[in-house]
């Protein structure tokens, strides 16, 4: 059933059909010399009108503004080509009709792509909204201001996606919604990983102890390179503390990560694989183990006992490799033994 309002919708094609009749009459009366060409021009324009109707159906089924604009342009060109044909200017008429045909194809392509993108956007927007509400509720309950800030950005991006969609650009809408989803996931991840207040300070303190431990482990054999790296590690640690104090936890976290990376590099480059240096490393391990022994006796931590035992095995292996002249393997083993002692120290703390 078609309502009355639909009947009122202007259909350019209807009056265009009337023009066709006029055009047909003109073509018939134009004489025989151009009759064949004019017949074909009439067919061409008529076929373009059919394609226009077909494209209109498709464009109507989408919210794509660009395809509407292009189809409107096609409509204008088609009307112009009819005018030119009635003025007995067949070449210009054909040229214009051909441009109308080009515009129709472009409109169809844009509409077809939009149809799929709109469906995708609708479904994804629904899913986004559900997760967004859930995450925002969680962030509000937790009073997590960083997550709430990111959620505001996410919502803004989703709003832009919607705006682009309303302006008929579903593809840009999908892209923007993806950005909004990414921000949403970021906020979600922040909430999942949310450190309790004070946790970052603990991490900084722990890193400070790691630096001290590394300096002790390197001892007097420490080379210039490794000492410079430890200095850099201290600088990054101070930067982390400063960033945290200024309210930039993410920057603090990055500085802390860099500090720890430098500690590892300092230890790695600190000892050249020569037998004497390795021997001193083993002696230092023995000294550390002796200091830890009474603490271990008073501890019920099975994990600490197990790790200490494995550290001892690594130390024995290092000594075996050293005796056999396998310096590189000996160095690796004694490093592993020291690292395990670090772990034991943390467990006993």
């Amino acid at each position: 059933m078609i309502s009355a309002t639909e009947q009122r919708i202007p259909r350019t094609a209807s009056w265009a059909a009337a023009v066709f009749v006029l055009l047909l009459g003109l073509l018939i009366g134009a004489g025989t010399s151009y009759a064949q060409d004019q017949e074909q021009l009439r067919d061409y324009i008529e076929r373009t009108s059919e394609l226009m109707d077909w494209a209109r159906e498709l464009v109507q089924d989408t919210d794509n503004a660009r395809s509407r604009t292009v189809l409107a342009e096609a409509q204008r060109l088609q009307v112009r080509s009819i005018e030119l044909a009635t003025q007995n200017r067949p070449l210009r008429a054909y040229e214009t009709a051909r441009r109308a045909r080009e515009a129709i194809w472009l409109a169809v392509r844009l509409a077809r792509e939009a149809m799929n993108q709109e469906e995708q956007l609708r479904v994804r927007a629904d899913r986004f909204r559900e997760v967004f509400d859930e995450v925002r509720e969680r962030a509000q309950e937790a009073h997590h201001e960083t997550a709430l800030t990111i959620l505001r950005q996410s919502e803004t991006q989703a709003e832009r996606a919607r705006e682009r969609y309303l302006q008929g650009d579903a593809k840009a809408g999908v892209e923007l919604l993806e950005q909004a989803e990414q921000l949403l996931q970021r906020a979600r991840r922040l909430l999942q990983d949310a450190p309790r207040p004070g946790r970052m300070e603990n991490e900084i303190e722990r890193t400070r102890k790691l630096i001290e431990g590394a300096r002790e482990r390197l001892g007097d054999d420490a080379g210039r390179e490794s000492l410079e790296r430890l200095d850099d590690a201290r600088n990054f640690l101070n930067r982390a503390a400063s960033q945290l104090a200024q309210g930039h936890p993410q920057r603090a976290r990055h500085a802390l990560e860099r500090s720890r990376q430098l500690i590892g590099e300092a230890v790695d480059s600190g000892v050249a694989p020569d037998a004497e240096a390795i021997r001193r490393q083993i002696e230092r391990w023995d000294a550390r183990a002796t200091r830890l022994d009474p603490l271990l006796e008073g501890s019920n931590s099975d994990r600490a006992h197990r790790t200490f035992r494995r550290a001892g095995e690594d130390r024995s292996d290092a000594a075996t490799h050293l005796a056999a002249g396998r310096l590189l393997r000996a160095l690796r083993q004694i490093r592993a033994a020291h690292e395990k002692l670090d772990q034991v120290e943390r467990m006993l703390r």
Binding site: Q40, Y44, R47, L91, R98
Partner: peptide
């Protein structure tokens, strides 16, 4: 170009779908 097209030569073009292959870039 349209200058070289004659109206009689349009018949074969009627039902051609006018999409052409293309290389694209997308930058976001």
């Amino acid at each position: 170009t349209t200058a070289s097209l004659d109206v009689a030569g349009t018949t074969d073009y009627l039902d051609e779908y006018s999409n052409t292959d293309f290389t694209y870039w997308e930058i976001w």
